[in-house]
Simulated assay, not measured.
Amino acid sequence: MDFTRRPDAVRYARKAVREFVEERGLLEHHDAVEASEAEHTALLVVSELVTNACMHADNPLHMCLGLYGKKLFIEVCDDSRAVPALVCADKGGRDGGFGLGIVLAVADHWSFVRTRWGKRVTVLLPL
């Protein structure tokens, strides 16, 4: 699915993740607390990825959702060739830039690849 660089892009991306998970019943085997935590984690990660793409890219971005075994696959592509960077939390006075640290804390796997048109960031989350 494609998103334009607008303030509501994150909202639409979160809605897409929520619908993907619900339509496939991916969290039905969890109790209510585990399901809520897994959904919130997925929503947090997609928020971070889409926010970053909106901040650094010039054109619309593309998001792909899927399953890789029992993991949620989230991929965001944009036209920025900037390399995702981990920012240390002890850098006082900095606003933002901590999204990758959040993703690393909750993901089973993440990667990025530079492409002809920009980059592709991929995250696998446990369900």
Score class of each variant (00 low, 15 high):
residue 1 M to C: 15
residue 2 D to H: 15
residue 4 T to I: 13
residue 5 R to H: 06
residue 6 R to D: 11
residue 7 P to W: 10
residue 10 V to D: 01
residue 10 V to E: 07
residue 11 R to V: 08
residue 11 R to H: 13
residue 12 Y to M: 06
residue 12 Y to Q: 14
residue 12 Y to A: 03
residue 14 R to T: 02
residue 14 R to V: 00
residue 17 V to A: 02
residue 18 R to K: 10
residue 18 R to H: 12
residue 19 E to C: 05
residue 19 E to K: 03
residue 22 E to P: 05
residue 23 E to V: 13
residue 24 R to I: 00
residue 25 G to S: 02
residue 25 G to E: 06
residue 25 G to D: 05
residue 25 G to V: 02
residue 25 G to L: 04
residue 26 L to C: 12
residue 26 L to D: 02
residue 27 L to W: 05
residue 28 E to F: 08
residue 28 E to H: 08
residue 28 E to K: 12
residue 29 H to P: 09
residue 29 H to Q: 10
residue 30 H to K: 13
residue 33 V to W: 00
residue 33 V to H: 01
residue 34 E to L: 09
residue 34 E to R: 06
residue 34 E to K: 05
residue 34 E to Q: 15
residue 37 E to Y: 15
residue 40 H to P: 00
residue 40 H to Y: 02
residue 41 T to K: 06
residue 42 A to D: 04
residue 43 L to C: 03
residue 44 L to W: 04
residue 45 V to M: 02
residue 45 V to T: 01
residue 47 S to R: 05
residue 50 V to R: 00
residue 53 A to I: 00
residue 55 M to Y: 05
residue 57 A to Y: 03
residue 57 A to S: 14
residue 58 D to G: 09
residue 58 D to L: 09
residue 58 D to E: 09
residue 59 N to V: 02
residue 59 N to S: 13
residue 61 L to F: 00
residue 64 C to V: 14
residue 64 C to P: 06
residue 67 L to E: 09
residue 69 G to E: 14
residue 71 K to N: 12
residue 72 L to N: 03
residue 74 I to A: 08
residue 76 V to I: 14
residue 77 C to G: 06
residue 78 D to I: 00
residue 78 D to E: 06
residue 79 D to P: 01
residue 79 D to E: 12
residue 80 S to T: 10
residue 81 R to Q: 07
residue 84 P to G: 07
residue 86 L to Y: 14
residue 87 V to A: 10
residue 87 V to W: 03
residue 87 V to N: 12
residue 88 C to K: 14
residue 88 C to A: 11
residue 90 D to H: 10
residue 90 D to M: 13
residue 90 D to L: 11
residue 92 G to K: 11
residue 92 G to Q: 08
residue 93 G to P: 12
residue 94 R to K: 12
residue 95 D to Y: 08
residue 97 G to E: 01
residue 98 F to C: 11
residue 98 F to G: 08
residue 99 G to R: 01
residue 99 G to K: 00
residue 100 L to M: 15
residue 100 L to H: 02
residue 101 G to Y: 11
residue 102 I to S: 15
residue 102 I to W: 10
residue 102 I to M: 06
residue 103 V to E: 03
residue 107 A to P: 03
residue 108 D to P: 04
residue 109 H to F: 12
residue 110 W to Y: 11
residue 110 W to T: 13
residue 112 F to I: 01
residue 113 V to M: 13
residue 113 V to W: 08
residue 113 V to Q: 11
residue 114 R to C: 08
residue 114 R to Y: 13
residue 115 T to P: 15
residue 115 T to G: 07
residue 115 T to R: 04
residue 118 G to E: 06
residue 118 G to Y: 08
residue 118 G to A: 09
residue 119 K to Q: 12
residue 119 K to G: 03
residue 119 K to S: 07
residue 120 R to M: 08
residue 120 R to P: 10
residue 121 V to C: 12
residue 121 V to M: 08
residue 122 T to I: 10
residue 122 T to D: 03
residue 122 T to V: 09
residue 122 T to W: 04
residue 123 V to I: 14
residue 123 V to Q: 00
residue 125 L to C: 09
residue 125 L to H: 04
residue 125 L to N: 03
residue 125 L to G: 04
residue 126 P to D: 15
residue 126 P to E: 13
residue 127 L to Q: 07
residue 127 L to D: 04
